[in-house]
């Protein structure tokens, strides 16, 4: 393979990684706080849908991004109401979120498109960072992405620092590892967990928005196609570490970019063998991580004061 192919592969791999990365970062915080949300897929769908609709209304993708954050936060809070306040089974509540997101986004999409085909979506454009973007290899791979890519990477760094080095991060980890001790130390366990749920939802919403307004331009029903679940696998694979999540999400992004290119490169091989690569990678990730990993002790366990 020559340099042009590899450059293109890595450049689109970075962009393809972003929806998974955003969702995985949010889920990392949620799981560190002890709340498992298997409904990321549904939240991402709602985010993707809202982003497109509001971007078209406001004429700017940032408006769409804000709407996706609002919608994602609302769904994250809904998950929190059930898991944290009502203390029901987190997995079942998450499954309901999948259906809710699938339904809401599909319902809204069909309502919006009932009056005819939608127009052009004002998506995120690739930044031109002047001389940096013109660098050979590094320019396309690192310095010519849409702005949210850099926001995502900055988020990962901020979270890695915040979770391990700040009081808030300590509080989040404490309610996920030992809620009883956290409670005794004066931390309001349920409040921290609700906040983590809201953050997780907002980030999944951003992931959906990235998919529909930066990676692609437009919404189609069920367009997230498993990225919400891959994001959860990514959290586990990255051992609940935000910087690890960057690496793992990049692996998924590059795998996705590679499978598209491999399809044309090897027309003799059934293309389905390539389409399923990211999903197989997720399985491999789950298997290789699961044996060595120490998961947050109170994950998926509601906390009650005695």
């Amino acid at each position: 393979m020559d340099w042009i192919v590899i450059t293109g592969l890595l450049a689109s791999g970075v962009r393809f990684a972003m929806p998974i990365l955003f969702a995985a970062l949010g889920e990392t915080v949620g799981q560190r706080a002890g709340v498992l949300n298997v409904g990321l897929e549904g939240i991402m769908l709602v985010g993707a849908f809202l982003a497109v609709v509001v971007a078209m209304q406001t004429g700017t993708p940032w408006g769409g991004l804000a709407a996706a954050i609002a919608g994602g936060t609302a769904m994250g809070l809904l998950h929190g109401v059930f898991c944290v306040r009502l203390k029901v089974d987190q997995i079942v509540a998450g499954i309901a979120l999948i259906l809710l997101g699938l339904g809401l986004s599909g319902f809204g999409y069909r309502l919006v498109t009932a009056g005819g085909a939608p127009g052009q979506v004002p998506g995120f454009q690739r930044l031109n960072l002047g001389p940096l973007s013109d660098l050979p290899f590094l320019g396309p791979v690192l310095f010519s992405h849409p702005a949210p890519v850099y926001l995502g990477l900055a988020c990962a760094v901020a979270l890695a620092w915040g979770l391990s080095r700040t009081g808030i991060g300590l509080g989040i980890r404490a309610v996920g590892e030992n809620p009883k001790a956290a409670d005794a130390a004066g931390i309001d366990v349920d409040r921290v967990r609700m906040a983590a749920c809201a953050f997780g939802g907002a980030m999944a919403g951003v992931g959906g928005a990235f998919l529909s307004t930066a990676q692609l331009a437009g919404f189609v029903e069920n367009m997230v196609s498993g990225r919400g679940f891959i994001a959860i696998a990514c959290v586990v694979f990255a051992r609940w570490n935000p910087l690890g999540a960057v690496a793992v999400a990049l692996a998924f992004g590059i795998a996705e970019a590679a499978q598209i290119r491999l399809q044309t490169l090897y027309p003799g091989v059934p293309y389905q063998a390539f389409v399923l690569l990211p999903y197989v990678l997720a399985l491999v990730g789950l298997v290789s991580a699961a044996r060595t990993v120490h998961l947050p002790s109170a994950l998926a366990r509601p906390y009650r004061k005695d």
Partner: peptide, 19 residues
């Protein structure tokens, strides 16, 4: 009324069952 309403109803039924 678009068909995907069915998924929303299913979600509400599950959440209602939990509640």
């Amino acid at each position: 009324v678009p068909f995907p309403l069915v998924n929303v109803i299913e979600a509400v039924v599950i959440l209602g069952f939990l509640a």
